[in-house]
Nucleic acid binder design. Structure first.
Lengths: 191, 191
DNA sequence: CCTACCGATCGGTAGG
DNA sequence: CCTACCGATCGGTAGG
């Protein structure tokens, strides 16, 4: 195991940063080459192309979310605890993987087939299983009887801005932030 | 006043649709020309360039949000009612201006200076005034004592997914949707 | 509103 | 890891 990052990892991280800042389409291979102090053609000794990098970033993150969901589904937790742990994981990802999460969130649509469909299926699967947890919470009386799809998307998107926030470097830990957002979503802002 | 849309309006709407579906950078003037049944060069008889269209879309929407905020600020309403009306307006915009709202939300970063800074200032101003309403709600005991910036972004981003939802054509009116989301944000999902 | 065309830049390859 | 270069496509203009 190498102690230092491989050149490929360095390139992938620089790509994620550029994709976040300018978007996938507006990032050129020459921009990326300059960011890692190479000529554009030399990039291809480490990566096989622009879209392959996007693909790696998108699917790596998708798999991490699925792994965590697998874990939470099999644990003996109340529905409220499951939601809380999912929210916390989303926030940890948003704060620790700031750059690649943005590509994961916003740039996946530039994937081409068949990867695009594969990615959408993974996402749909994740959402359906998240929604199933919400539905069981409604059934057992933990949550209010609100359309589970509305609930799902409201929860998921209320977390999406976090990566944006964290770049400003406010002095709050991910765990604290997770607690505040979970409170808002679960108990609302009304006193 | 013309009863029919001007060609310029038709082009702008087609541009907003393409910017939403593929992103600003990945949309070519030839794509746009094809969408409105023209040759690329003919577009320039109606618009002055690609970025001018993005600029129009972004600032038109920014002004509409500011106008509504102006109205709500001067009305005699409780803080909870102000938040509720703001949320409803966001949702109405997301459902009635589906295409241009996405460009407004996601594609503004492709503006160049000085428009980019001007747009960011407008946005910052809107957020600060929204936050001031939240802060007065915390001060007068209407809302819980949660960091107002966290509250602001959680509210704003919990609405951002709506345009995405509405494309699927679910049988729910904007007003109903606004009520559900306001309930979640104000009272939480816990029974 | 079109044909014809501009220089610039794109992702990527050949060959060393 | 570089120089040199490829065909394709970009936003936009000239001229009618």
């Amino acid at each position: 195991m190498p102690l230092e990052k491989t050149k490929k990892q360095v390139i992938l991280e620089a790509a994620a940063t550029l994709f976040r800042d300018r978007g996938y389409s507006a990032t050129s291979m020459r921009d990326l080459a300059e960011a890692v102090d190479l000529k554009a053609s030399s990039l291809y000794n480490h990566i096989s192309g622009k879209e392959e990098m996007l693909k790696t970033i998108c699917f790596q993150n998708a798999y991490r979310f699925h792994e965590e969901l697998n874990r939470i589904e099999t644990e003996l937790l109340s529905t409220a605890e499951k939601i809380e742990q999912l929210v916390r994981f989303h926030i940890i990802m948003a704060t620790e993987e700031v750059t690649s999460i943005t590509s994961f969130n916003d740039e996946w649509r530039h994937l081409t087939e068949p990867d695009l469909s594969r990615f959408k299926e993974l996402r749909k699967d994740y959402e359906n299983r998240f929604k199933a947890i919400i539905e069981s919470g409604i059934k057992d009386g933990t949550f209010k009887d609100i359309d589970p799809t509305i609930l799902l998307h409201t929860i998921l998107s209320s977390i999406r801005w976090v990566y944006n926030w964290y770049r400003t470097g406010r002095p709050i830990t991910p765990t604290e932030l997770a607690k505040e957002i979970t409170t808002i979503v679960l108990s609302g802002i009304n006193r």
